[in-house]
């Protein structure tokens, strides 16, 4: 067995199944903690109760946590010599198989005809990014990003006069809080906010989404960004929007910020709003003799 003949379709199906049906441990823990912070008997507490019950049922029955199984976003790291064209074919085949097994809802619609392809494949669907690396292994991260929260994701161009937001971290703080306010309950909070400072309109949105792969309890290596994450997290939760927008103490479960170089003329702040169902999963593939060694996380 070598990377040339490797077929990972089955492993990709299992990765999709895990992402769609099993909420990561850090997200569960965040939701449990949030429940403890809500008033007993409140609609906010009731919503979190239902959410946690749903997470358990989905895992037990191997059914989707949310019926909107979203855009599958694959970030693939691969060693020198692997054909990304073949890996892409395998990912598409896996998406179709996972749809057949009801792990994914048919979610790819032709924008011109309105026709649903029925199997989660189509033009630029699923989303895939390939990165060559020095390891002799394949690592895949998968995020399922639902449409409701995607619709409230947004991008600001600083300076923003209405919000008094200049081209600095104070300006970033202001626009991210505005994004949380604008979203209200429509993005299925409590949210994880992925934020990218800089880039262009395309790379900024991509970077903001990639922040959603980070663990809720990680610490940003940049102390300035770490402090900003902490502050926005606390202030977002002062806004009282609460789970589902019912009111309450938990509006955000986490804030994750990255910075990119930008053009002198541009200062974008991209905000990827992620619903409480932050469905991510990863797998590692290694070739050991005739065997494919696979581990999921």
């Amino acid at each position: 067995m070598d990377y040339k003949t490797l077929d990972l379709t089955d492993q990709f199906v299992e990765l999709i199944r895990r992402a769609a049906t099993q909420l990561p441990a850090d997200m569960r823990q965040g939701l449990h903690q949030a429940k403890g912070n809500e008033a007993p008997g409140s609609a906010a507490e009731g919503a979190l109760d239902t959410i946690l019950l749903n997470v358990d049922i989905a895992e037990k029955n191997s059914t989707p946590i949310c019926q909107d199984t979203g855009t599958p976003i694959f970030e693939v790291k691969y060693p020198v010599g692997v054909s990304t064209r073949k890996l892409a074919d395998q990912i598409r085949a896996a998406a179709a198989a996972a749809t057949k097994n009801n792990y994914l809802r048919p979610n790819a619609v032709d924008s011109l005809t309105g026709k649903n392809s029925g199997d989660n494949t189509g033009e630029d669907f699923p989303t895939m990014h390939f990165h060559e690396w020095d390891e002799d292994a394949i690592h895949v991260d998968l995020l399922l990003k639902g449409g409701g929260c995607e619709n409230v994701s947004t991008q600001y161009k600083l300076p923003d006069g209405d919000l008094g937001a200049g081209r600095d971290l104070e300006g970033v703080r202001r626009v991210v809080l505005d994004a949380v306010y604008q979203a209200q309950g429509r993005g299925c909070g409590p949210a994880v906010l992925g934020v990218a400072i800089g880039g262009d309109r395309g790379s900024g949105y991509l970077k903001s989404k990639q922040q959603l792969f980070r663990q809720l309890d990680d610490t940003n290596p940049d102390p300035q960004l770490a402090a900003l994450e902490e502050r926005i997290f606390e202030e977002a939760n002062q806004m009282g929007i609460g789970p589902m927008g019912f009111g309450g103490n938990t509006t955000a479960l986490g804030v994750k910020i990255a910075a990119q170089h930008r053009l002198p003329a541009s200062y974008f702040v991209s905000v990827a709003y992620m619903c409480w169902a932050n469905r991510r999963a990863s797998m590692d593939i290694q070739l050991g003799g005739e065997e494919v060694e696979v581990s999921y996380a």
């Binding site: 919503a47 239902t50 959410i51 019950l53 749903n54 049922i57 989905a58 029955n61 059914t63 989707p64 946590i65 949310c66 019926q67 909107d68 639902g146 409701g148 309950g185 299925c188 589902m244 019912f246 619903c275 409480w276 169902a277």
Partner: peptide
């Protein structure tokens, strides 16, 4: 208002 995302539970 149903609970967004609670899809397996509601099913």
């Amino acid at each position: 208002h149903a609970i967004g995302g609670a899809a397996s539970y509601i099913a």
